[in-house]
Design a protein around this nucleic acid. Sequence first.
RNA 1: GCCCCCAUCGUCUAGUGGCCCAGGAUGCCAGGUUCUCAGCCUGGAGACUGGGGUUCAAAUCCCCAUGGGGGUACCA
Length: 489
Amino acid sequence: MIRVRFAPSPTGPIHLGNARTALFNWLFARHNGGVFILRIEDTDVTRSDPRYTQLIMDDLRWLGMDWQEGPDAGGPYGPYVQSQRLSTYQDFAEKLLEEGKAYPCYCTQSELEERRKAALARGRPPRYDNRCRNLSEAEKKALESQGRRPSLRFLIPPGEKLAFEDMIRGRCEFNLSVLGDFVIMKADGTPSFHMAVVVDDALMRITHVIRGEDHLSNTPLHILLFEALGFPRPHYAHLPMIAGEEGDPLSKRAGAFSIQDYKGWGYLPEALVNYMLLLGWSPGQKQEKLTLAEAVERFDVRHVSKSPAHFDPKKLDWLAEKYLRQADSERLIELIVPLLPEEAKKVERPRLKALVEAVRPGLANLSQVVKESEWFFKEPVLDEGQITALSSDKPRAVLAQVLEALEGQEESFIKEYNKFIKQLAEKGGLAPKEVMMPLRLALTGSTHGPELVAVISLLGHEGCKRRLKKLLTQIGQLNKNEINLLKET
RNA sequence: GCCCCCAUCGUCUAGUGGCCCAGGAUGCCAGGUUCUCAGCCUGGAGACUGGGGUUCAAAUCCCCAUGGGGGUACCA
């Protein structure tokens, strides 16, 4: 049985990079009929916050991923939160200590830091010099009597090279001689990251570790630990990093790219997921828009790219537009009402639906939909240039005639609108554009937007009259006919 | 400094020695359709980082250089 895990640390909201790692793990599990496990790595007490654990789970669910074992789901190898597994790590650390595979190190952090700096200054590798490896019992006692609390270091076994087969990169080889003994238990009794991952991956029977490339150089340490502990090593796959537009690392700008942000901007989760799919993996064929189910069927880690991908917001938007355009309107309304002005709550459902459907083409997210819907809720305020444009003879006559026509008609006249515009243009010897553009501008305050028919039917008979009247009044200098017209109502 | 990984159009990628004077998608430009925007249709510009090998043949294999990324923590 294939078992994979996503193991975030709850030190902040997850961003695109993390989410993509989760997604590829999930896909791998699904494709192979395996188990996807969520594990929370909160061994860094100072930086972890349980609020983020909740947020991470919310984000994953929002994106459409589920897990068979995890903090909330439970499972046979729990608990799935590292801070609740402390004694387990201690037991294994004890074992390593007894077997001589680890030893206490009494160096303080400031001493280590100092030596690191000094080494660097002399052009020497800044790694730990293994000086506590061979301390006698008497020396240990002496150090302890100074009040020093030891950390526990793993003793790198002598050997030249260590190699492993990465599912994405193929054979990766490392030189063990450049490694310093590394900490597996901190002085406060909590495990280091290396210790915790290896113990957990082993105990949770993880068969495939799929993680970011930033862990590639940790892998030899982990393999060493698996061997020392007597566990079989899992298979590894290291995913390429995702860089920002400028090629900067994504994680350092986590805030700007968190899943929460995209959710907040009103991107549809399926669009985001689809875009993440394309970051480092290609579904093949010509089709790039695909559902999670299709991705599950086609996904293969071995075909994931080795080189880092740049995040391209334009391509995200291209996909997001497609998804927004085809999304169920009822669902969209649920999502968008809280974002719209108060008045929206008073608008009848069908009208709201028509609004969203008219406005959504070309837009990538709900914030844009809200913005492009402004004209519907608020009467337009024209700028000077626009007013001047509408004040010249032709547009003014058009607007007045439209008003006049509307005045004599019932609500249902809206249905006749297309014919009416055509007739109006014909009578006045105008191009359709010369009728429609002024109308559009007068009605919405903008030269672009949904098709005019939709605008008019959305605004309704009374709405159109009100706006036209207001505008004509504003333009002023009306002839007698027009004034009479205005007086009538 | 040292170690590791990577390198095809602006971007995401296809390409696992001949099918590649390199294909697709996106973006960009031009034209068409259209009241506008979007869409759709048609067309266009746009890449194998460089240098050495290996081979009858290299984007594909090897070496070097260059560039990018990651690591080098009692962070994960």
